[in-house]
């Protein structure tokens, strides 16, 4: 009887215990692998984002350049350009700012918005920059 009790206390793990241990181990491994995969995809995302920032800034510079010489700003109200075979789409819009309540100022202020969108895996990335441009005085 004594022998039997000792034997029972030294028995191996049950199937349930082993399965629970394996499940915990699997969850830990899945979490590790998932975080590692995310890190790798973040490298690509950072790079894509950085390129989008360059393209957006450059689109603003182009708009300034075009407006510096344009006869009228209206033709640049909405300009769409593509980079890298359409991977990045940049839409630049020029709107006349509302100058009401600014006294006798006759200046035309333009609000320029450059918005870039790109495919980032299953998501769509977007980046936007906004600035102002003094078109000149309304004669």
């Amino acid at each position: 009887m004594l022998t039997h009790t000792k034997c029972a206390s030294q028995r191996g793990f049950t199937l349930m215990e082993v399965m629970a241990a394996l499940a915990i181990l699997s969850i830990a491994l899945v979490i590790l692998i998932k975080s590692q995969t995310e890190s790798l995809s973040n490298v690509a995302s950072i790079s894509n984002y950085e390129r989008a920032v360059f393209y957006t800034e450059n689109a603003l510079h182009w708009t300034f350049l075009d407006l510096n010489h344009a006869e009228s700003w209206e033709e640049f109200q909405s300009v769409t350009t593509e980079e890298e075979d359409g991977d990045y789409v940049i839409v630049t819009t020029v709107q006349q700012a509302d100058m009401e309540g600014e006294g006798e100022i006759q200046a035309v202020m333009l609000k320029i918005i450059a918005a870039t969108t790109w495919k980032d895996g299953r998501h769509e990335g977007n980046f936007e920059l906004e600035t102002w441009y003094l078109w000149g005085q309304e004669l």
Binding site: L29, L32, I33, S35, Q36, S39, L40, N42, V43, I46, S47
Partner: peptide
């Protein structure tokens, strides 16, 4: 292996940043 890949990915991110 997973830890090693994570460290490499981290280093790659640091270099890229």
């Amino acid at each position: 292996g997973v830890l090693s890949s994570s460290i490499k990915a981290w280093e790659a991110i640091q270099i890229r940043v």
